[in-house]
Design a protein around this nucleic acid. Structure first.
Lengths: 231, 231
DNA sequence: CACGAAGGTGTACGTCGTACACCTTGGCCG
DNA sequence: CGGCCAAGGTGTACGACGTACACCTTCGTG
């Protein structure tokens, strides 16, 4: 429906076209509907043609990750390390939010892609440039975890729209069985709408966590923290 | 090779036996080798027989999650909230470490299982009992993310054993291209062995992060933090 | 103009989850 | 005691999927 068609005369494929078509297709139909077959069809080509450009599906996914990672801004310079890192990570977050499937794919890689390594190396470099020791930076990166990529592991995968009265019933049942969950869910729902699984401001939560961590890192840095001190 | 065999006379199946056999099989052969077919064979039964006990594979995985979640200790009482939460989460961690596939399966669920909700509700209850506001607790749970389950998103999936000289070559290449990564990897490698992707003490990293977060939570709690304060 | 490599095709295999119709038990009630 | 019926187990089959392998087609270069 996008390209293909006009059989017979079609631009030659290459790795880049394949990768970008895959990203676009995943954006449109979701990652679970992206198969070698559907991608081939999208490109007006037979499935096996793709294997001339990517070794297999895993490598296709690797390549797609690197396309997205390439969208992350380079580090700003001239700012203090804390806000520079913060900005960079929020940029990563913006890139990943444009492609909702990307975080799951990144997590599923069995080895980091070259683009991912570039990005990680440069983030580490930002901490080092800020004066943090290699030792502290190591632990800092671990503590950041998937947050360097701009996403948080979601505990509640945001159930899609259900009709309001079913939700009301569910709410009553939930409140009986999971009083605390319902309470803290309600804590963030100002207007009356949809108490369960909604009304969560993801961006706020992300910045809350990242600032808590960055402040913690800064505190440790200032007091000259070393892993050797910890028994 | 474990049960089955002695055809003809075989204990009746039920949901629980299916679930526990699935957990044991995943422990033994890995989650990616767990199929409805392999599980059926393990139980000495035809694949379709399983569908009398679980609706489909997703529900099988849900059930497996709840088996593991059931292994998490109940909250200790009598301790302050911080160390009580800490202990509980480390118990979750121990349970998940016994079943290395479990974290990936938990992440892949599209809706939380009942057992997961029970656990989350009770962890939230621990913060509330410690006096944290529902508001703060909400954000705290988000900041914890998958860490409530006792795992951190691994950035480097721990490449398995490769021979030492290949590693030495790789090291030289890595050092040129990713100087900072190699530097912080080395920061934690005291003895000379395997600089790349090894020598990381997961348990240390986990506790570093969890304590950083818990300390941050405590600080906010003491100073009466409220999300309303944040612009 | 020929030729060889790079790009594209067609067919086929093994694996997966599972729908659907069927048979076999075993516990309960008359 | 006999018969019944639901719960448990079977067999066959289908439509995805990733991809191996042998083949044909196109095009840039000598």
């Amino acid at each position: 429906m996008a390209q293909q068609a006009d059989a017979g005369q079609r631009a030659r494929l290459n790795r880049d076209r394949v990768l970008h078509a895959a990203v676009a297709l995943a954006d449109r139909v979701g990652i679970e509907a992206l198969s070698m077959r559907s991608l081939a069809q999208e490109l007006g080509v037979v499935p096996m043609a793709l294997y001339k450009h990517v070794a297999n599906k895993e490598q296709l996914l690797d390549g797609m990750v690197d396309v997205i990672v390439g969208e992350i801004d380079s580090p700003a310079h001239g700012a203090d390390w804390k806000s520079a890192v913060r900005e960079r990570i929020l940029s990563a977050r913006r890139a990943l939010l444009r492609h909702p499937w990307a975080s799951r794919v990144i997590e599923s890689r069995s080895a980091p892609t070259p683009g991912a390594l570039d990005y990680l190396d440069s983030v580490i470099g930002m901490f080092r440039a800020g004066g943090l020791s290699a030792d502290l930076t190591h632990h800092v990166m671990h503590a950041l975890g998937s947050r360097v990529w701009g996403f948080t592991q979601e505990l509640f995968p945001a159930s899609p729209n259900v009709d309001p009265d079913a939700q009301a019933v569910m709410f009553r049942e939930m409140a009986a069985r999971y009083p605390y969950i319902v309470e803290i869910a309600a804590a963030r729902t100002h207007d009356g709408e949809s108490v369960v699984n909604q009304g969560c401001d993801d961006q706020f939560e992300f910045e809350f966590a990242i600032d808590l961590l960055l402040d913690g890192f800064e505190r440790l840095h200032r007091q000259g923290w070393t892993s050797a001190d910890q028994s």
